[in-house]
Amino acid sequence: MVWLTLRQHRMQLLAMLVLLLGAGALLLFSGLEAQGYAAAHAPPGCPGQQDVCGEVNAGLADRYDAVYLFVGMLPLAAPVLVGAFWGAPLLAREYEQGTNKLAWTQAASLRRWLTVKLALLATAVTVSGLVMSAMVSAWLPGFREAKGDTSFANAGVFSMVGVSPAVWWLFAFLFGAASGTVVRRVLPAMAVAVLGVVTVTFVLFNLRDTYAEPVRLVTTHYETALDRGAMMKELTWLSPSGVESALPPFDVCSMPNTQRGAIEQETCLFEKGYQRVFYHHPTSRFWRFQWTEAGILLAGALPLGGLTVIRTLRRRN
């Protein structure tokens, strides 16, 4: 049965292996190259945030951004591909080709056939997600001074580290499998899987900053007071009389029309007793948010898996 599962899904497994090897090679190369660049170009005292490090930090940031073009696509692309190519065809293909009538009339029971397939592929997809997460996590520290800790604040990176890729891919796999048992044709099932995974992705990305009550920080020295890499929810102004507003007052300091003007306005307002209010999630909440999202996705994956099993085992037509 294990052989059958591997044989039937070898293209998907192979594609996943290629993706992991490709991503691994890219991240390893990028990491080593960045390390070499920093060693050759960093003035004494760097790495750090001092002005003298500006140039080497900019160079590292460019390198990070180039790789991020690829890594930043994965949070959406990888679950979509897993849902469409691993999940959707799992049962839809059998129904469409009529091979379910072959596979389900063997001595081995349908229950066992389904259990082995779901368990094996779900494990493979989860392990692949963890491997991807480990590789991205190993790549990130080389750019911490240049880009800050992006693993929490950046929605794309957050989805590629911790347990996130594993649970997202598992969810997408089960979503695809469930759509295959409902639609029973490969292409429509793939379309449903893509649509579903994309929708859930956008919804959860937008809900993320509500996983916890944000911390309220009132300060005029946010460069030092604010946790670099924190997840920002809302930014407001607090007047000396204690009134909070989203926009700065227009009649206290002159309105800016350049970036420099914005800084001047801010300095001016701070001098008049105004303060900024940051509603944010500090980076210490990283794991809490990871597990919250994992919990939401697993709570969704469970009924999808149940639907797949029930619809397959119940032989009405």
Partner: peptide, 10 residues
């Protein structure tokens, strides 16, 4: 043992 009408095979 069963052979379905469309003789499904992989």
């Amino acid at each position: 043992a069963f052979m379905a009408q469309d003789k499904p095979l992989y």
